[in-house]
């Protein structure tokens, strides 16, 4: 078994990261956490997570950026909001998961071939193209990009959906795609302006 050093030095902390989280929408209450763990206990997925939500919050506010962004936890969050509802300090845990996911995608530190971030990106691309999402095409696209083998295992489901008329290979599109793209372009411009500052 390979030995791994678990000791953490203060130099490994990224204070800016913690401050960034608290400035993002939903991250405001991060520091109020009293580490009660109700988020982890109510989470239907914490049993699969490498860090429980409580621990992730603790790591985030102490500035352990690498651990936080490369954790599986943020990708396993299914956005069911149970943690947020139960939190005694009104910490918007789900939104913190979202902002951490965005940062992880931005910095390209999410796990390779892990389908969730790929799905998220493809979802965005499809909206840009058609204005709506076609689940069939999205799923096909996803598996082509992540796991061919899994895709083959899905044929049974595909046939079932075909049979019940729930699958369609023709994407639904909106009429005023230009209008939508203008909105997105305006935000791109805004972002460029911000990063230039």
């Amino acid at each position: 078994m390979p030995l791994e050093q678990k000791l953490k030095y203060e130099a490994e902390r990224d204070v800016k990261f913690a401050n960034w989280v608290t400035r993002e929408t939903g991250g405001e209450n991060l520091r109020h956490c009293i580490q009660c763990g109700v988020c982890s206990a109510t989470c239907p997925l914490s049993l699969y997570m490498d860090y429980t939500p409580r621990r992730l919050i603790n790591l985030a506010r102490e500035g352990f950026k690498k651990e936080v962004l490369s954790s599986l936890t943020i990708w396993l969050c299914a956005s069911c909001y149970a943690c947020r509802v139960e939190c005694p300090k009104k910490i918007q845990v789900t939104d913190i998961m979202y902002l951490l996911k965005r940062r992880a995608i931005q910095e390209g530190v999410y796990p390779r071939h892990f389908p969730i971030p790929v799905l998220a990106k493809e979802f965005g691309r499809m909206i840009f193209l058609f204005g709506r999402v076609n689940e069939t095409l999205l799923v096909i696209d996803l598996f082509l990009r992540t796991n061919w083998f899994r895709f083959l295992g899905m044929t049974r489901l595909g046939m079932n959906l075909m049979r019940t008329g729930r699958m369609s290979f023709i994407p639904e599109q909106i009429k005023r795609k230009r209008e939508l793209r203008k909105i997105l372009a305006a935000l791109d411009a805004e972002e460029q302006k911000e990063s230039a500052l």
Binding site: K6, L7, K8, Y9, E10, Q35, Y51, R54, R55, N58, L59, E62, F64
Partner: peptide, 12 residues
């Protein structure tokens, strides 16, 4: 030991 983070820390 930062018992909530789950590792030992050295803090100068």
């Amino acid at each position: 030991e930062d018992t909530l983070a789950g590792f030992v820390r050295r803090i100068p």
